[in-house]
Computed example of a mutant assay.
Amino acid sequence: MSSTGSTGILVVSATAGEAAHVPDGLDVVVTGIGKVAAAVAVTHALAKCDPDRLPLVVNIGTAGALHTHHSGLYLPSAVLNHDISSEVLRSLGHPVRDVIEVEDGDGSVLATGDSFISDAEIRDALAARADLVDMEGFAVAFACAQVGARCRLVKHVSDQADDSAMDWPAQVDASARVLGEWLRETL
C-alpha cells in the first residue's frame, strides 16, 4: 500500500476484495469499511503527498442500487451524506456540507452512510434522493475536497440494497473484476 507513487493516481477502496483486480503499478489504499475509516485513511495518504502534486483519487467499490433498473458501472456526479441530520443542524445555526459535486460523472447520485442498506423500505426512501448507496464515497470525496485533491467515484452495483445485499460478500469479486477492467481501460 502506497500513496506517494509516481503515477499521479491513488486508487482507494474500502476492502482488499474490492481492490483485488487493480492493475499493477497503481498506488492503492484500502481504507476499511465506513465513513470514518475512509476519511482517516484518505487524509493520512494525502498528507504524505507533495501538496503541490496531489494525486487524482479514484474511489472504486461496490454499491447497492436504489432503483431496480440500475445495474453495472457508474461514475456518480454527486455524492451525499445520507445519514447526517443536516436539516436539524442547519436549523440550529450550524452549516453542514452534505452534498459534493464530482467532476467527470455520468449524472448519477451516490448516497453514502454508515448503515449497511439491506431493507427495501429504507432503500425506497433513499431512492427519492439518489441512485446508488455505499458506505465510503462521501467521506473520500470530502477528504479530497478539504485538501484540494481531485476525486472520481467509480461504483459497481453488487446488489439491490434489499435482502439481496446479504449476499454482498459473494458478489465482491465480480464487481472487483469490472472495476479493475475500468481502471485498465481508462487510466
Rank of each mutant, 00 (worst) to 15 (best):
S175D: 06
L54R: 05
D159S: 02
F116T: 11
H156M: 08
P95V: 12
R177S: 04
I60Q: 12
C144E: 09
H94C: 13
A111Q: 12
G137V: 01
T186C: 08
A141W: 06
G34R: 06
A143R: 07
D163T: 12
S164F: 12
G64K: 06
D104H: 14
A143D: 12
A45Y: 00
R150V: 00
H69K: 14
T62E: 03
H67D: 11
A45C: 00
A78E: 05
A145N: 09
V36A: 14
D119N: 15
L75M: 06
V96P: 07
S91H: 08
A111T: 08
V40P: 01
H69P: 00
S71A: 13
K155R: 15
H44F: 13
R152W: 09
A161T: 00
V11Y: 01
T4H: 13
A45D: 04
D83F: 03
A143F: 11
S85T: 05
V28S: 09
D52Q: 01
G61R: 06
N59V: 04
V178D: 12
V178W: 04
P76S: 13
Y74A: 12
A174F: 02
E18D: 11
D159C: 06
D27E: 14
E103K: 09
E87I: 02
A139R: 06
V178I: 11
V40R: 12
A39W: 01
D83V: 03
S3M: 09
T4R: 11
H156T: 08
G34F: 01
V79H: 08
E181W: 03
G148Y: 05
P23Q: 07
V96F: 07
V11Q: 03
F116G: 13
A145W: 06
A128F: 00
G93N: 10
I122L: 13
M166T: 14
A37P: 00
I122V: 14
T68W: 03
T15V: 00
W168V: 03
L110C: 11
C151W: 10
